[in-house]
Design a protein around this nucleic acid. Structure first.
Length: 115
DNA sequence: TGCTTGACCGACG
DNA sequence: ACGTCGGCCAAGC
């Protein structure tokens, strides 16, 4: 990816991807980063989320880690809010984990490859 | 400027 | 099913 991209631009691209995650689906930090053009940089997604203004009203709770779990302490307010939001959208947790086979967001490829 | 810290991830033991 | 380790890279101090 371009190295001359400002962090603000990076965050903006990541926020744009997060906004595309539909109700009742989830995406991993790594998936979001890759979708935004930053392969193998899941931490950029975490960072973009930390810096996201509330006014954006991002569906932050739809971004979970690659283990299918929420990246918050079980006893935290963030965990409770994210989990109840997801459950309200129909996402089922089994032993604290979400089943990617069912709930993973599968965006349509923007550039279909034909051979 | 250099070192530590993350809302992370995949490989390995 | 864990815990550890290295890779990753911007922020904060």
């Amino acid at each position: 990816m371009s190295a001359s991209l400002s962090n603000e631009q990076r965050h903006a691209r990541i926020w744009a991807v997060i906004k595309r995650i539909p109700r009742g689906r989830v995406a991993t930090y790594g998936q979001v980063a890759a979708e935004a053009g930053f392969v193998k940089q899941p931490r950029l997604t975490a960072q973009a989320l930390r810096h996201a203004p509330d006014t954006l009203e991002l569906p932050w709770y739809r971004v979970i880690n690659a283990q299918g779990k929420l990246s918050f302490p079980l006893d935290s307010e963030a965990y409770r809010r994210a989990r109840s939001q997801l459950e309200a959208e129909g996402v089922i947790f089994v032993r604290g984990k979400v089943d990617f086979e069912i709930y993973r967001w599968r965006p349509r490829s923007a550039a279909p490859v034909l051979d």
